[in-house]
């Protein structure tokens, strides 16, 4: 039934690099867990200042793909192929992985504030990089918390433990924390899966606003969310990218039958 190894069963949109600024691009990516091939055939270009959603059933390789983009898979998997960030292949040993991760930030599935104050959560990575000027730090805290749309709720309690925050607030603080190191790509791994509907809605609004300044790539298991939020969508199945196109097209006129099955809920 599934025959996705056949290239005609795949539709991957390609931008014209003359006209479009491509922030990130993958070429011939293969991810192995031990000797098992977990992900392949995903040559995707990510356009600057857009939101791209990665969708697909669980185990389809979408999270594996996302985590490869800032080399978070380094310790767990072997990643082969090229990952271009502004034209530079960051998947080579000479590259400083810490600088890569600073520029390509990540927000995780479960909110994971550190056992520090809200303020300390945001300034922590900066302080580790040698920035101790209180004025600079204060500014960053205010700016990023405002960007993450949580400033008004926490501004009077900045020195309260971040562990005492609700899920939605904690996740926003985590976004602010990621923004504090001035990345230009933001990777989000199902960031709303632990949140209630109201918090989810607020989070989506925040991401729409962040799009002005960042290139955003988000894994979601929620198709409505992908449809509402993203400009482009990649559909993954069995460790491969099956379809990549404008979100509207993926959801209304998918080119591949498998995608159609998945987005219309007839999957499996």
């Amino acid at each position: 039934m599934l025959n996705s190894n056949n290239p005609t069963d795949r539709f991957i949109y390609h931008f014209n690099p003359e006209e479009t600024t491509i922030t990130m691009q993958t070429k011939n990516l293969e991810v192995y867990y031990g000797k098992t091939l977990a992900m392949q055939h995903a040559d995707i270009q990510f356009k600057q200042n857009t939101i791209t959603a990665l969708i697909g059933p669980s185990g389809s390789g979408k999270s594996t793909f996302l985590r490869s983009l800032n080399r978070m898979n380094d310790d767990v998997a072997t990643v082969k192929g090229q990952i271009l960030y502004q034209g530079v292949d960051i998947n080579q040993p000479k590259i400083d992985v810490y600088e890569v991760r600073r520029r390509i930030g990540m927000v995780f599935q479960r909110p994971n504030p550190f056992a520090k104050s809200i303020y300390g959560n945001i300034t922590f990575a900066l302080e580790r990089r040698g920035i101790h000027d209180k004025r600079v730090l204060d500014e960053v805290v205010e700016k990023t918390l405002k960007q993450a749309a949580v400033w008004d709720q926490v501004k009077d309690n900045l020195h309260k433990s971040a562990l005492s925050l609700s899920g939605g607030q904690a996740q926003r603080v985590c976004i602010a924390r990621a923004l504090a190191v001035q990345p230009d790509v933001l990777l989000l791994d199902e960031p709303a899966s632990a949140l209630d509907p109201v918090s989810t809605q607020q989070l989506e609004q925040t991401l729409r606003e962040l799009k002005q300044d960042y290139t955003i790539i988000i894994v979601t298991h929620n198709m409505q969310q992908a449809a509402r939020l993203s400009d482009y969508t990649v559909f993954f199945n069995l460790g491969e990218a099956i379809e990549y196109n404008k979100t509207r097209k993926v959801f209304t006129r998918p080119k591949i039958e498998l995608t159609d099955d998945y987005v219309s809920g007839n999957f499996g």
Partner: peptide, 17 residues
């Protein structure tokens, strides 16, 4: 040229490393 500049920045061994 910009690419090369970025590549250089990314390949410099950081304090973190």
């Amino acid at each position: 040229q910009q690419n090369q500049k970025l590549a250089k920045q990314l390949m410099k061994k950081s304090k973190t490393a």
